[in-house]
Amino acid sequence: MAVTHDTTADRALAEVPGRIKKEQRALPSFLKTTGLALLFPMLLLLIWEGTVRFELVAGHLLPAPSEVVGTIGAMAADGSLWGHIGITLYRLLWGFFWGTLAAVILGSIVAMSRNAETMFDPLIQAFRAIPSLAWVPLFILWLGIGEPSKVTLIALGVFFPVYLNVVGGIQSVDRKLIEVGKAYSLSQFQLVRRIILPASLPSFITGLRSGLGLGWMFVVAAELLGASQGLGYLLVLGQNTLAPNVILASIVLFAIMGKLTDYALKKIQTRALHWQDSLKT
């Protein structure tokens, strides 16, 4: 037993230099990736700041980035920023949840049944062509100007890209894989869990990212009408008070929050699809 313990300990100690070297290689790679990602945005900000500072653009129409950052900092200092971000995230996440849930259920039914596809898909495609703002008066009439109408509008925006990717992902599963599963006497549940779900997962996660992006667009439409708090409300406030710095601060916050939420989904995608033999991997 002592010999086995010593051997295991020696093996663990021998692996330490390899781990250190791996971490040392990963750090420069991370710094290089981060630098490349920030290069173009920083260049745009410098050009933007320079055009305002040298009065090539009127500052009262296009405030400098430093002024926009100052506006965000002032809202963070007085505490109003966190309330606007919090209520917007609340609306987005609830709308994203309900829209995704409906899309997964209906998309799975349509993809697995030809009769269901014939019945439901043409109507869904027709609804998809309706502009988001066209739904606003109807939702306000039915649900009022409170949170239910806003969350429903966001859920509607999330639904369509997730639905399309769920249907497309399931229907694109290789028929030979299904036949192999049936040859091994897999039940319907086992076919879904072991073949259909893994094969359609890449398309599904792509649909989630697309749905999240549309969710951010629809949250703007939801908050432009009848909201008293939120990042969309800041857009209206900046317009009504003739404050372009507030408008740009809201736009910058939308961009930051949208990027952070998409980054989180991308990390989930990387972990969920680590088995995939793709060009990137």
Rank of each mutant, 00 (worst) to 15 (best):
Q239M: 15
E23R: 15
F96M: 09
L186P: 02
I20F: 00
L273A: 03
L191I: 05
F97M: 00
K32R: 13
G232K: 06
T100W: 06
V166L: 01
F160P: 12
I247H: 05
I178M: 10
G83P: 00
V173L: 09
V192C: 08
I205P: 02
Q171H: 04
T33M: 00
G232E: 10
L208S: 08
R91T: 07
K266A: 09
A249K: 02
T8L: 15
Q190G: 08
T100R: 02
L273T: 07
F30H: 01
K267F: 15
G258R: 04
G230T: 01
L242A: 15
S200V: 01
R53K: 13
P122Y: 07
L133H: 09
A74T: 10
G213N: 06
E49Q: 15
W135K: 11
F160S: 06
A102M: 10
A26W: 03
P41G: 08
M42Y: 11
L224G: 14
F159V: 09
R91K: 13
F189W: 15
F159N: 12
L101N: 05
R194G: 05
A264K: 12
T281S: 15
L106F: 10
K150W: 08
G144A: 09
V166I: 11
W275T: 11
A58R: 15
D6R: 14
Y90M: 08
V219S: 09
A12E: 12
A111M: 04
T8V: 14
F218I: 05
A199D: 00
L81E: 00
A58V: 07
L123M: 14
S132G: 14
L133T: 15
M217K: 09
L156Y: 04
L265H: 13
V162Y: 11
L93F: 14
P65A: 06
S278A: 14
I20Q: 00
T8F: 12
W48R: 09
P137T: 01
L141M: 15
A255Y: 04
S149L: 05
L248P: 01
F139A: 13
V162A: 09
E49A: 13
I178C: 01
Y90D: 01
L231Q: 01
E147L: 14
T34N: 00
R53N: 09
K32G: 03
G73V: 03
G99Q: 10
F218P: 04
P63M: 00
L89G: 11
S66N: 08
E223M: 06
A243S: 12
V69Y: 06
P28R: 08
A116G: 07
S172Q: 07
W142R: 12
R271P: 05
L164P: 02
S203Y: 07
R19S: 03
A255M: 08
R175L: 00
Q239P: 05
R114A: 12
N165A: 12
A37N: 05
N115C: 03
E223I: 02
P17H: 10
M1R: 07
T51I: 14
V219K: 10
Q276A: 14
A155D: 05
E147I: 14
T51P: 05
M75P: 00
G86D: 07
L56M: 15
A102T: 08
